[in-house]
Structure formats: structure tokens, C-alpha cells
């Protein structure tokens, strides 16, 4: 059972943690911490909520608890001439996406990561603890903020 859950969710949890930390090593540590909690609490899980909601709740709470994360977060700006020289490779696009997300507020990072991961908005609302309507509005605003950031980095067609 655990191995099945791990195989299914580990990559998703890693991407969400990476969205929060923008640091692959720290994201890996958070994945590990998440699955230690999952393993410990799986026998008492009552299935009165979706297992995915439960796992994402654990993962995002771990992210929020990692207070020191913000200190380690790369805050340096991209080079000034980035807009002219930006590489169009998928790796660079990915780096830019994660960088833009890491510049958002903590809860925005969680919400957009879960949205990009493909969780339904009701699921995101259950993970974060807000109403569905509130989450929908927030996602709309976060998308605007991201668009603005892509504009700033000259990555907008």
C-alpha cells in the first residue's frame, strides 16, 4: 500500500515542494519528511477525505513549517540583459517558472503549485483551508502576478 502511494505521489510532492523552496535538495528533504508522516499515519487514516488531499496537506504544512526556507530562497534578480539573451530551452523555461513562483508569497506559492500539479480547485481549497470561491479568485490573481513577472523577464508573447 505505502509503496503504491509513494510511487504515485512522490514526483508530485517533489514538484510542489520545489515550487515552494526553489531548492532541489530542500524539496527532496521535504518529500522525505512528508512520506515519513504518511508512513506513520497511514494505519490511522480514515479515508473520510481524499488520500491525495491528505498527502498534499502534510507536504504543504511541512513547507510552511520550514521557516528557514525563506532565508535560503534565492532572491537574486535575473541579470538585467536577460530579456535579450534568455535561452529558449525547456530547462531555462523551467528555471524561470520556478524562479517566478519562488518570488510569490508563501501561500500563493502553495496554491499555484497545486494548481499546476493538476489538483481540482475543491482539492486545493481543502488543502489550504479556504473556500472554493476564495481559491478561484486567488488563482486568478496569482496568474496575473506570474504574467507580470514573465513580462518583467521579457518572457511573454
Amino acid at each position: 500500500m505505502f509503496e503504491e502511494i509513494y510511487s504515485r505521489y512522490a514526483s508530485q510532492i517533489f514538484r510542489v515542494c520545489l515550487g515552494y523552496t526553489n531548492d532541489a535538495d530542500q524539496a527532496k528533504d521535504l518529500v522525505q519528511e512528508t512520506f515519513i508522516s504518511v508512513w506513520k499515519n497511514l494505519p490511522s487514516f480514515r479515508y473520510d477525505s481524499e488520500i491525495s488531499t491528505w498527502i498534499f496537506r502534510i507536504a504543504t504544512n511541512n513547507c510552511l513549517r520550514a521557516m528557514e526556507v525563506s532565508k535560503r530562497m534565492p532572491t537574486a534578480e535575473l541579470p538585467y540583459n536577460l530579456a535579450e539573451t534568455l535561452d529558449e530551452s525547456p530547462e531555462e523555461k523551467l528555471k524561470l517558472l520556478y524562479r517566478c513562483i519562488s518570488e510569490l508569497e508563501e501561500t500563493d506559492r502553495i496554491i499555484i503549485s497545486l494548481e499546476l500539479e493538476g489538483l481540482p480547485q475543491t482539492g486545493i481549497a481543502a488543502v489550504v483551508g479556504l473556500s472554493h470561491g476564495n481559491v478561484r479568485v486567488k488563482i486568478h490573481r496569482i496568474k496575473e502576478k506570474l504574467t507580470q513577472k514573465f513580462h518583467e523577464y521579457g518572457q511573454f508573447k
Partner: peptide
């Protein structure tokens, strides 16, 4: 980069192959 579906495609290209296997995790 403005299209959410495109962002999702980019998002999912993050490499996860260095994560431990389920046996290593156990």
C-alpha cells in the same frame, strides 16, 4: 508562458528521477 496549460507542461518537465525509490524510502 502566459497560457496555464503551457505552464503546466513546463512545470511537469522538472526532473524527479533523483528521488529515492519506494524501497530506499522505506
Amino acid at each position: 508562458m502566459d497560457n496555464l496549460n503551457d505552464l503546466k507542461t513546463v512545470w511537469h518537465t522538472a526532473k524527479t528521477d533523483k528521488l529515492p525509490t519506494s524501497k530506499e524510502m522505506l
